[in-house]
Each structure stands twice: as structure tokens, then as C-alpha cells.
């Protein structure tokens, strides 16, 4: 365009992170907003797209990497975290993002979360929580409320939901936050903060499914219910209070940072670099790798 505005004195615009691939989510799906907020956060962070690896599992939400210009990896159901960690260890200079659904993250992939937490590996994990299995057409999810009737629980579920916030806090995560697709600017700020956090950052995002979700989970209803933790005067350094607030998952919709460890342990990727530096000082010749096996 000839009469385009001059570019701002800043490196990146949200659109720099938008790929040509058009989302095929249902119109009205909360995931659109999450994507929009992510573009914003990435623009604010200012790393070029080719230095970002964005990994997901399988699900509607897991399509998200393809809609960004980052190096994307849409992997298999529930395994985004292990793959993301491999990438981060292989090249710690990359910005590594990980995203997926509630089923992906807390059902099939639930076992991986604890381990990403205890490694405090520097990546940001965004769970797009819609309390339902979207891609497979509305089955019960691990975050579905007790009693929910779905195609696989036609008489109502007999289980309590997983509480993603408490789950991750319980494992000792250093950064735990919640956002919603009903507050995109707030969500963008939370994602940005998560990315900047040096270590494993977990962000649960209430991102409703318009096709299979319940009416009371939709954006409009969320907007009426949400309360920012800041407005409650919560101090994100207070881990115990964070846990107390997190217990309200499913009842209250709190947004913002529940817990940010003021003194997180060193990240796994950093420790890997240090060990490589320490041990690699001798820089042996790989062609002589068998020398130590010679029987003297």
C-alpha cells in the first residue's frame, strides 16, 4: 500500500506472527482470542519468529502453532511437553512455547506436567481449557465438572474434575497463572509475563468451546464472572494463598498470576549449558571415542 503508515520504532507487530494458514476453528471458539493475545504477547517480547519453536499436542486447540509464523510442531496427543523439552535442551537459545487442550494436558499428557515442573525448564505452557474434548466431538474431559452429561457420560459424569491450577502448584511450579478468552488484553499480558519468566510457566486459559461447551462457560458469561487476582489484592509471591485461591477453580474465575516464585531454581536448560561448558572444556575428538575402551 502506497499510503501505508510509517513503521513504529519497534521491531515487531502482532501480524508478524500471523501465518497465512487460516484457522479452521468453529466461528466463536475461544481459541481465536487466545491466538490473538499470543500474537500480541510475542510482538511485545520481540523475538523473531524463526527463533521461536511452538509445540502442541492434538486437539482443536493444538492446531495453534500452525497459525503462527514460528517454527511449529503439531505433535501427537498428550506429548507436546516432552517434545518441547527436547527442543529446548537441544537449543536453549530458542524461545519455546507449548500449547494444547485440557484433555491433551491433563488426561493423556498429565504425567508429563509434573516432570516439566520439577525440571523448571524454561518454556511456557498454555493450556486452552474448555472442559471438553472438542476435536473428537464433545466427550468428557478431565476438567469437566462432576455430573456433566456428554456423549460419553450420557447419564452424567461420576468424577470430580482435575484442578489444573492446584495440580501444577502442588508440584511446585514457579509460575502459575490463569487467563480467559473473555479478556484478551489481560491474557496477552499474562502470556507475555509467562514467557519472560525464567523457568517453566504454566498458564491455564479459559477458552470456551462454542460447539460442545455449556452455555454458562461462554465468553459472555465468563466476562460477567471473572475477577482479577490483582483486584483481590493477592500477592503473587504468596504460594499458600495462591493455593487457597486456586481451590476455587470451577467455581470462581480468577484471572492473573496466582504464583510467581521470587527465587526460582535454575532452569534445566541453563544447567545443561553449564555442564556442557564444564565437561566440554577438554573437547575430545569424536574419532577417538573408543580409546577409553582399549584394554591396557
Amino acid at each position: 500500500m502506497s499510503n501505508a503508515l510509517p513503521v513504529v520504532d519497534k521491531k515487531f507487530e502482532p501480524k508478524d506472527f500471523k501465518s497465512d494458514l487460516k484457522p479452521i476453528w468453529c466461528p466463536g471458539c475461544g481459541d481465536f482470542g487466545v491466538l490473538q493475545s499470543l500474537y500480541r504477547a510475542l510482538a511485545a517480547i520481540g523475538r523473531p519468529a524463526h527463533e521461536i519453536a511452538f509445540v502442541s499436542g492434538i486437539g482443536c486447540s493444538s492446531r495453534i502453532p500452525g497459525y503462527t509464523t514460528a517454527y511449529g510442531f503439531n505433535t501427537v496427543h498428550g506429548r507436546a511437553l516432552p517434545i518441547a523439552q527436547g527442543i529446548k535442551i537441544a537449543n536453549p537459545s530458542l524461545l519455546v512455547l507449548c500449547a494444547g487442550g485440557d484433555g491433551d494436558g491433563f488426561s493423556i499428557g498429565g504425567g508429563h506436567v509434573a516432570h516439566a515442573v520439577r525440571r523448571n525448564i524454561d518454556l511456557t505452557y498454555i493450556v486452552m481449557d474448555n472442559q471438553i474434548y472438542g476435536l473428537t466431538k464433545g466427550q468428557l474431559s478431565p476438567t469437566s465438572p462432576r455430573g456433566l452429561k456428554t456423549v460419553t457420560s450420557s447419564l452424567g459424569s461420576l468424577e470430580d474434575p482435575v484442578n489444573p491450577l492446584l495440580y501444577v502448584l502442588g508440584y511446585g511450579a514457579s509460575f502459575v497463572a490463569q487467563g480467559t478468552a473473555a479478556d484478551l488484553p489481560g491474557l496477552a499480558a499474562i502470556i507475555e509475563e509467562g514467557i519472560r519468566f525464567p523457568g517453566f510457566a504454566f498458564i491455564n486459559v479459559q477458552s470456551p468451546c462454542v460447539t460442545y461447551g455449556e452455555d454458562e462457560w461462554q465468553i459472555k458469561e465468563q466476562r460477567a464472572r471473572m475477577k482479577s487476582l490483582e483486584s483481590l489484592g493477592h500477592d503473587p509471591k504468596d504460594q499458600l494463598h495462591a493455593m487457597d485461591l486456586a481451590r476455587a477453580y470451577g467455581k470462581e474465575l480468577y484471572t492473573g498470576v496466582f504464583y510467581r516464585n521470587p527465587a526460582p531454581s535454575p532452569t534445566y536448560d541453563q544447567l545443561v549449558l553449564e555442564r556442557q561448558k564444564e565437561k566440554g572444556a577438554s573437547a575430545p575428538d569424536p574419532a577417538r571415542v573408543l580409546d577409553s575402551l582399549i584394554q591396557r
Binding site: Q85, G86, A90, A114, H115
Partner: peptide, 28 residues
């Protein structure tokens, strides 16, 4: 480590091979 590499003892076999797939994607 001496060669600039790393080992991850993962939480299970799926995570182990997953991390390897990730590292390969990252060019290693």
C-alpha cells in the same frame, strides 16, 4: 556432555523418545 550434548532421563519411554524427536526437530 564433553561433546556438547545432553542426556535427559525422561519420566517414561514416550517422553524419552518425544524429547529425542524434539531435539531432532531442533536440528540435533
Amino acid at each position: 556432555w564433553k561433546y556438547g550434548g545432553a542426556v535427559l532421563q525422561a519420566e517414561d519411554e514416550i517422553a524419552g523418545v518425544g524429547a529425542a524427536v524434539g531435539a531432532s526437530f531442533a536440528g540435533v
